[in-house]
């Protein structure tokens, strides 16, 4: 129960870990804070003094569980740098999942792929773990929802603070679909920059396989990939143009030994070696040549016309037919399989 009290201090996870090593146990760290042997802000000390039972009552009234290290899934609790406690909304899956991570500032190429991978992995029956940020994170979770799968969002803010605010709905839909939202920071913690990098070790920790969709060389996604390698996870990366900043991170990972993934099936097959066989999926009923072309990552009307040799009019007709049948969706002039 001391871990719950300590969590309310809102300290940097690295500091918690180093104090724990110095004092020998979390219990002793808390005791040291109580007698002011450790310098923390007075407000943090007062937060630690509130007894755990009160905290639990507050949390359960709001539908939030607090899971201490020992109660976390083994793939997370066994990590030396794993969190001492997680606040959890929804059902945290027991089995490891696949993390889909990438840049917040993503191109539509990355966004479409992230959604596609989120979809394919969820459809294979694995939990999909990501942040809840703009860009790749959000797109991956949208893909999970498209497939009706389980998504886990790891926040860098307090568990009751939606950031960005526009992703509240996405988070709530994940929960409604049986997924989970987790954070190691106490409720009310604002989204501050330094809280996000430590969070990435939880994303990779909850997964056995990490796929980086689109990343700059300096972004948080590469931190996640690094932590994942330290944790012994399999790291995959989606290659991109070599002259585009938004692809450099992924291409560097591939150069340094990450496995390149070329399409969702490729990834599902590779991940099944780690996670066990994928759930067999119902194949889409694809009976027209155009539908076959739309398959993987989406194409523009012009590209479909070039690839099929049909006229724009014929392509538009075919795509509208598929759209009415619910097989594809239009986004501007880009058509992708749902």
């Amino acid at each position: 129960m001391v871990r719950l009290r300590l969590a309310y201090a809102g300290m940097h996870p690295d500091r918690v870990a180093s104090l724990r090593d110095r004092f020998g146990s979390i219990e002793r760290v808390v005791a040291a804070i109580e007698r002011r042997a450790i310098k923390v802000p007075e407000r943090a000390r007062e937060a630690v003094l509130v007894d755990a039972a009160t905290r639990r009552r507050e949390l359960s009234a709001r539908g939030i569980a607090a899971v201490e290290r020992a109660g976390l899934p083994p793939h997370l609790s066994e990590l030396p740098d794993g969190p001492e406690l997680l606040f959890v909304k929804g059902d945290l899956p027991v089995r490891p999942g696949v993390a889909v991570v990438g840049a917040r500032r993503a191109t539509s190429y990355g966004l479409r792929l992230a959604r596609r991978y989120g979809y394919a992995l969820a459809e294979a029956g694995w939990p999909v773990v990501s942040g809840l940020a703009r860009g790749i994170d959000g797109a991956a979770h949208h893909g999970v929802l498209d497939a009706g799968g389980i998504g886990v969002a790891v926040l860098g803010s307090g568990i009751d603070v939606w950031y960005p605010a526009e992703h509240r709905q996405l988070g709530e839909r994940l929960l409604a679909a049986g997924g989970a939202v987790v954070s190691e920071y106490p409720p009310g913690t604002p989204p501050v920059g330094w809280r996000f990098p430590p969070r990435n070790r939880i994303i990779s920790g909850l997964a056995a396989v990490v796929v980086v969709v689109e990343a700059t060389p300096t972004g948080g996604a590469l931190i996640t990939a690094k932590r994942a390698l330290e944790q012994g996870r399999e790291v995959f990366a989606v290659p991109g143009d070599v002259d585009r900043a938004t692809s450099t991170g992924c291409n560097l990972l591939i150069r340094d030994g990450a496995v390149p993934v070329l399409d969702p099936d490729d990834l599902v097959e590779a991940a099944s070696l780690v996670l066990g066989p994928a759930r067999p999926q119902a194949a889409l009923s694809v009976d027209t040549p155009v539908a076959g072309l739309i398959g993987t990552i989406g194409s523009t009307i012009d590209e479909l016309a070039l690839a099929s040799g049909l006229s724009i009019a014929q392509i538009q007709e075919e795509v509208s037919r598929l759209e009415l049948a619910g097989i594809v969706a239009r986004e501007g002039d880009v058509v992708r399989k749902r």
Binding site: R105, T107, S108, Y109, R134, E166, E331, G332, V334
Partner: peptide, 15 residues
């Protein structure tokens, strides 16, 4: 101007 573009990231937030 770049939402939906396949090679340049859009820097606008959804709202």
């Amino acid at each position: 101007g770049f939402r939906g573009d396949r090679t340049k990231p859009c820097t606008c937030s959804t709202p």
